[in-house]
Design a protein around this nucleic acid. Structure first.
Lengths: 221, 221
DNA sequence: AAATATTTTTAGATTAGTCTAAAAATACTT
DNA sequence: AAGTATTTTTAGACTAATCTAAAAATATTT
């Protein structure tokens, strides 16, 4: 049997995402944490994936995806992001609601389905969160995550993360409608006080201090 | 835990469909046949569903759905038929291809998703096969299955079944593009030789003998 | 480098869904 | 109504994915 179970798929995707943030082999505990399960379960699953040649594995040395593991994970990411795009663009969901549903939809196996969906959506290159959507061959445009001060005047980015994740900071951002996925355009920088004027989601103008800017990470559009 | 597993859902749907064709309690073997599994497995599952009060069950007496089992099954049918409609109307699948994919999609749990999909599709009352789509409260228009001679002149129906399912007859139908799901309009009946002129899928005109008509079942539109 | 702490793996048990084979209940036939 | 056939249920075993607790390996501290 050469199929991949839903659970195996979820492991592959978790490992893929951990690999994106580090060149090192991924630790058992890191996977356990991502999958909200025990280290023992992870070891069991790793052995299985290793036997199927989806991961490289040596005892106590962590794992990396093999080429075939990587391409499976990429295909899952493609499905996930296309479904998210569908939910937001066609069914009018807001971007915060869609993750959980897309987590289910990404396991629907038909390749034809996903390619048709891709066409139906107009072959988008990025999902509503600003993350790149792999094409049917698995290629995608990598967009570096940069801090707001690195974004050129006139350029646009999508908010993808924050440095300072204290409650007070997040609440402040929330008040400005600066949530993950928000589109930010740099209008002008003022050398006088190092402040920056931005436009949020194409309409709301806002002045940010340099301190705030340094804590915001965006991906360019 | 009060959730319903994918497998339980598949059993509920199979029982629901068997209930549609008979007033009698559904036999273990009938379910086993529909689910392509052993009678032993069915008995095990029935016990579980019975404990959850989704079916009425007495040993050796077969099962019926309870109200709550029925409403779960109806919700699955709603999902299945809406997804099929989406696949055919929006993604340009042909109606024969969609069943298997919809079989997967129907297990996506979000009610909000399915209600939004319903709106997106324009709240269709019938799926591409001509089967009724339950609304979000579980109500649907029942359309009786009638043989072609019972369909009035000028009326339209969707082909949903055949009486004579010999290979030769099916091959003959295939040649005329008369496949399940095909739309048939009665144009005129000729008393002289009891033949009937129909239009297939809104374009192809065709004369059928009475013998053929008696073997075709349609649902009215 | 020895002792301690942490991480990872193993061992053994559990649950859901399945199976086969045998036993029990029901239905058909003469 | 007795015997045979069929259907349904039970019993016991298997697999996938999980768990806890203990053992083994690796990393850190003194």
């Amino acid at each position: 049997m050469n199929t991949t179970s839903r659970t195996e798929e979820n492991y592959l995707k978790a490992i893929f995402q951990l690999c994106e943030r580090s060149e090192e082999p991924i630790a058992t505990n890191a996977i356990a944490h991502a999958m909200k399960t025990s280290a023992a379960s992870v070891t069991d699953m790793i052995k299985k994936l290793s036997k199927k040649e989806l991961v490289h594995y040596q005892k106590h040395k962590g794992v990396r995806l093999t080429d075939s593991g990587n391409s499976m994970a990429t295909s899952l990411v493609r499905k996930h992001r296309l479904w998210e795009t569908f939910l937001v663009n066609k069914l009018n969901f807001s971007w915060e609601e869609v993750h959980e549903i897309a987590e289910e939809l990404e396991h629907i196996p038909s390749k034809k389905l996903i390619d048709r969906l891709d066409d139906f959506l107009g072959n988008p290159k990025f999902d509503p969160h600003g993350d790149p959507i792999p094409d049917s061959a698995g290629n995608f445009t990598f967009r570096k995550q940069i801090s707001l001060p690195e974004l050129a005047e006139g350029a646009e980015g999508v908010l993808v993360g924050v440095q300072d994740d204290t409650m007070t900071f997040l609440q402040y951002l929330n008040k400005l409608n600066l949530t993950l996925g928000t589109k930010i355009k740099i209008v002008e920088r003022f050398d006088y006080d190092e402040s920056t004027k931005i436009v949020i989601n194409g309409k709301q103008e806002q002045i940010l201090t340099n301190k705030v800017c340094l804590n915001l990470f965006v991906k360019t559009i």
